[in-house]
């Protein structure tokens, strides 16, 4: 078993125990995105594309500074721009880096049917293994953040890897490194939460943002990407950050109770017909000659 496999704590579509479960001591890594110091420069967008050698997309102007409406299979990191008027007539220009949130309880992984196409390492990174991806797109359905994107040519789904290649070699993710203002920060989840809470407190105490807070949604078990928001009561204003994300109930229903019910039903059906055969046997044609080719 490779060292890498030992570092896997969740595997999609996997039957039986996880080979490396509980086998490694490792801190959870986390990206902190402080939206209050994001200047929407898009350095992270390009750093991501450059590091991952992703092809550039042809875009068109759409009355916004935002590069494109949503992340794409070749564009894993998108700053969302939102003009937000305030009550006093002034305005805010909210910018938020949108990317895979690396949920502790990842909806994509829960939805994925392919063994090992999505794994979660012990450091919390949720990574897609495209050579095992079958292209069903269930992960797209499972994600509460609209992140994984399908490439129609390769028929595979792609998203932010949290630069697992860099992180595994002791480097920070490319976006984190690039961020000019330091609105992006990288470290252990504990440290980032601590930093985020301190910043939120500073915003409340010194900058008049009474509702400043940290976004680390419990509905998905917390995320490997956490935000500091000026107004944590209204994450939707930041380009549709869901207020209370969780794995869609449909996916949960589908993947757990319905699956077990279905399995039981199918098994029951097979057992039933078997028992029926054992008890009653085949119908033979009576009333005269019997079926010749029984």
């Amino acid at each position: 078993m490779s060292q890498a496999t030992l570092r896997v704590q969740k595997i999609s579509g996997h039957a039986g125990p996880i080979p490396g479960e509980g086998m490694q001591r490792e801190d959870q890594v986390c990206k902190l995105v402080d939206t209050t110091t994001c200047i929407g420069c898009k350095a992270c967008e390009i750093a991501c594309q450059e590091w991952n050698d992703l092809p550039f997309a042809q875009t068109t102007f759409d009355n916004t500074y935002q590069t494109m409406p949503t992340t794409q299979w070749n564009f894993w990191n998108l700053i969302k721009f939102n003009e937000q008027p305030k009550e006093d007539g002034t305005m805010m220009w909210l910018m938020r880096k949108d990317q895979c949130m690396h949920c502790a309880d990842p909806g994509c992984l829960a939805a994925c049917p392919s063994d090992g196409a999505i794994v979660q390492y012990t450091n919390g990174i949720v990574d897609f293994q495209q050579d095992r991806c079958i292209g069903c797109g269930y992960c797209i359905t499972g994600c509460p953040f609209n992140i994984p994107k399908f490439n129609p040519t390769t028929k595979k789904v792609y998203k932010c890897t949290l630069c697992s290649d860099r992180v595994s070699q002791g480097l920070e993710p490319a976006c984190i490194k690039a961020c000019p203002t330091g609105c992006l920060h990288f470290g252990t989840k504990d440290d980032m939460k601590d930093l985020a809470e301190k910043r939120a407190r500073q915003l409340r105490e010194h900058y008049g943002f009474e509702n400043a807070g940290v976004y680390d949604p419990p509905g998905v078990g917390g995320t490997g990407v956490i935000y500091v928001l000026h107004d944590a009561t209204n994450p939707e204003a930041y380009g549709g950050l869901p207020a209370n994300p969780s794995i869609p109930w449909a996916v949960r229903l589908w993947k757990t109770p319905l699956r077990w019910l279905g399995n039981l039903a199918m098994l029951g059906g097979l057992v039933g017909v078997t028992l029926h055969y054992l008890r009653f046997g085949p119908k033979t044609v009576h009333n005269g000659e019997s079926e010749k080719r029984s």
Binding site: T141, W249, V251, W254, L258, G269, V273, Y277, P282, V285
Partner: peptide, 30 residues
């Protein structure tokens, strides 16, 4: 969300029918 549920439920129902159909067509009704 609707699609995955409908697909699964519909598939399960047809599978139920299919099991009986195959059983009857092969083993039960000679």
């Amino acid at each position: 969300y609707t699609a995955v549920l409908v697909h699964a439920v519909a598939a399960l129902l047809t599978i139920g029918g299919f099991i009986i159909h195959v059983y009857m067509g092969t083993a039960m009704v000679r």
